[in-house]
């Protein structure tokens, strides 16, 4: 048993349990808030992106291209260090707030691509049918396009959520006390890399398994009703 304790001493991890819990709470909070913000923002970006008006779709396309072609870490730095020099009031905001803003803006672009794919999967005849019975743009969106797009959006949206949770680990670099930071703290105080980094890896794996189960359940649920069968 001694060699196992040498490799991974769970008692050290036990001492840091509340720190890990605190970090996990911040991680999940950052993920949840930026997920909601990204879905709302992403839907708006997707609608602009699909407009025929150049003043709407060009900025949306540029925004998506910029986010997709630059690293998240650089985007986080841009928001964390750059935003206060544009808007001085944001300098007082916490690292967590600025990190959530960066994650939301980053994921909004990915969500917009997912929503756009979902909307594109709705057959053209459905929209024309809505027009033929005299529905307005918003009515077509509410009653025809979005309900059908939803079913095709949910599986990739869950996949992106799993990526989003993993991406919150980058917030540790701008001094947010997230789940990874709890492990870094353990390592800097006790110099026990195994206990700190393997615990973190296991924690993220546990979250990933929950997400896998969720996406499995959703796929079963979506395969249920006949309206989804084409």
């Amino acid at each position: 048993m001694n060699w196992a304790l040498d490799f991974y001493n769970y008692r050290i991890v036990e001492q840091y349990l509340d720190r890990f819990a605190e970090g996990l709470e911040n991680t999940l909070m950052a993920a949840a808030v930026s997920l909601v913000a990204a879905v709302i923002l992403g839907t708006m970006v997707a609608l602009c992106r699909m407009s025929t008006r150049a003043i709407l779709w060009r900025p949306a396309a540029g925004y998506v291209a910029f986010i997709l072609a630059t690293p998240l870490l650089v985007q986080i730095y841009l928001i964390y260090y750059g935003l206060p020099s544009l808007i001085p009031a944001t300098g007082r905001w916490s690292e967590l707030t600025l990190g959530i803003i960066a994650l939301s803006l980053h994921n909004a672009a990915y969500m917009s691509e997912i929503v756009r794919g979902g909307i594109a999967s709705v057959p053209r005849g459905q929209i024309e049918g809505g027009k033929a019975v005299g529905m307005s743009y918003l009515q077509r969106l509410r009653y025809i396009v979005l309900p059908q797009a939803f079913a095709n959006t949910l599986p990739p949206l869950l996949g992106q959520t799993a990526v989003l949770i993993k991406d919150t680990s980058l917030l540790s670099i701008i001094a947010v006390f997230d789940f990874l930071s709890a492990g870094l703290l353990l390592n800097s105080e006790r110099v026990r890399p195994n206990e700190s980094f393997l615990t973190i890896a296991l924690g993220y794996l546990a979250i990933y398994i929950v997400m896998l189960g969720l996406s499995w359940a959703v796929r079963r649920w979506l395969a249920g009703p006949a309206w989804n069968a084409v």
């Binding site: 993993k166 980058l170 890399p193 195994n194 980094f197 393997l198």
Partner: peptide, 22 residues
Amino acid sequence: IHILRGTPFLVQLYVFYFVLPN
């Protein structure tokens, strides 16, 4: 594949950089 996809790259980097030499 699942282990590599289920953990952030940053954590993997730390494991390769800190845990393996240990």
